[in-house]
Amino acid sequence: MDLAAIRRTYRRYAGHYDMVFGPVFHPGRRMAVETANQRPGRRILEVGVGTGLSLPLYRKDIQVTGIDISPEMLAKAREKVAEQQLENVEALLEMDAEALEFEDNSFDVVVAMYVASVVPNPDRLMAEMRRVCVPDGEILIINHFASENPVLRGLERTLKPLSKMLGFHPDMALDALPDEPDCPRVGVHRANIFGYWKLVHYRNGPAANGADVVDSQVGPD
């Protein structure tokens, strides 16, 4: 899917997004923001901020910048910031998630929720998130990853040709995201009861010593 297709899809979604997708995605959003909220005074970048559903969840002493490729989605986010007087939201910008127009090391935490399977090149997304994140900072990704259950996996493969219409790839594997020594996964958590959405928590390089992957899965996917 190219950028133009993504923009078209989300232009269509913008008006109904909160009602249709809000409740489904909320547990994951809450989980990611709670992780980001653990320390005060941090600067956070939310990549793919969309209609700004997560913005009210951040601590007021955390400064948030949000980017998205869809102006229609961003307009909704701007309304939320104004209506709810979210003064800790420093800026909203229209930008490509794979080309973050910020200096290196600009943010303490970089979050992407439901973005990794939307962008054309997840590797580039990840490289950009790491670049703008400070060393030892945190990178949080909420995404759907291909199921290990054969029946669901089959369904996801069936849906694959519809990815343009859906606005995301239903069959992205967790391994499509890097797990490198200089940017280890420090946790993979289920973001809802079915484990359909997962929170992948990275520590940005330099390498965190002895960071074992904590897998909080409690049952079959």
Partner: peptide, 12 residues
């Protein structure tokens, strides 16, 4: 900068 939102795209 449209409605307070900078558009950081070369095409725009």
């Amino acid at each position: 900068v449209r409605d307070g939102i900078p558009v950081m795209l070369e095409d725009e």
